[in-house]
């Protein structure tokens, strides 16, 4: 099919929304599970990061990245076309229309989506391109004699900034909001939903959205608690000690306590 054919009909655009949405939801779930390794020893998530960047063939990593980028672009292009057409289809509004069924989440998909997009761009600059804090690249970690990045320290240090953490938590709340309509809607758009499953899928979508919110938001929350004097759920005081008086050039090695190594 030509790319124009992909967006030609109303239903084709909805299929694009549903399928790209499904790909992105799958990624989000995997990303969240990967992140939760931060609650293990620092070595766990650092080894995982090392695996993704150095052991996994780079072709695989880039195929995944390109698929995700294409999915995001198609999801947005399709959404923009749908919104424009929908506005055209209803040029005049009613004096006072009473909506009965449409959920607030459903009506605000375009806004929650836009804020999540802004978040994704910031997040990539923050932790993937790492152009926001110069210290990130210099956080080093030794995995069985191999020099690697200390992703664990990077996460905790990144979330020590209250503003950044607040933005992450807000974005995840909006993602939960977006998924509470989207995850149920994609079944309808692809034709896998009926009156009985509609209520079940709506509940599932809300539960899934909340799970994603909780799984992601718990990391900035615990990082903030540990960083600002609360109980050390993550090794925040060690990371603070190592990064506090950094000269801006030399590699930083966080000295984790013995207990962190198992």
């Amino acid at each position: 099919m030509s790319p124009i054919g992909l967006f030609r009909t109303s239903l084709a655009k909805k299929f694009v929304m549903a399928i790209t949405g499904l790909i992105l939801v799958g990624f989000v779930l995997g990303h969240m599970l990967g992140n939760l390794q931060v609650f293990g020893p620092p070595e766990a998530i650092n080894k995982y990061a090392y695996f993704l960047h150095h052991i996994l063939p780079w072709e695989v990593l880039w195929v995944v990245r390109i698929v995700l980028l294409v999915a995001v672009v198609l999801h947005i292009v399709s959404a923009v076309l749908l919104v424009i057409e929908n506005r055209k289809a209803r040029p005049e509004t009613y004096e006072d229309q009473q909506l009965i069924q449409a959920s607030f989440a459903a009506r605000t998909m375009k806004y929650s989506g836009l804020i999540v997009l802004a978040f994704i761009i910031f997040h990539l600059l923050h932790f993937t391109v790492q152009s926001i804090d110069p210290a990130f690249r210099n956080l080093r970690f030794d995995i069985d004699g191999k020099d690697s990045q200390d992703a664990y320290a990077m996460i905790v240090l990144g979330f020590s900034n209250v503003g950044v953490s607040a933005f992450y938590i807000l974005a995840m709340a909006l993602l939960c909001w977006h998924l509470s309509h989207g995850v149920s809607s994609m079944f309808q758009s692809l034709g896998f939903r009926n009156e009985i499953w509609r209520t079940r899928l709506n509940r599932f979508a809300l539960a899934f959205g909340l799970l994603i919110f909780a799984g992601f938001a718990i990391i900035p929350i615990t990082s903030l608690i540990s960083w600002y004097g609360g109980p050390d759920i993550v090794y925040a005081s060690e990371i603070r000690q190592a990064t506090e008086n950094w000269d801006g050039e030399t590699p930083i090695y966080v000295s984790y306590p013995e207990s962190a190594k198992h």
Partner: peptide, 29 residues
């Protein structure tokens, strides 16, 4: 020139013959 479905469900509520969103899912499939 009709618009696209955003799965709001307003149509089902308004329908005087109580036609369900199932018919939309069937058409999508």
């Amino acid at each position: 020139g009709f618009g696209n479905c955003t799965n709001y469900g307003e149509c089902q509520e308004a329908c005087p013959k109580e036609i369900k969103l199932d018919v939309i899912a069937k058409m999508n499939r």
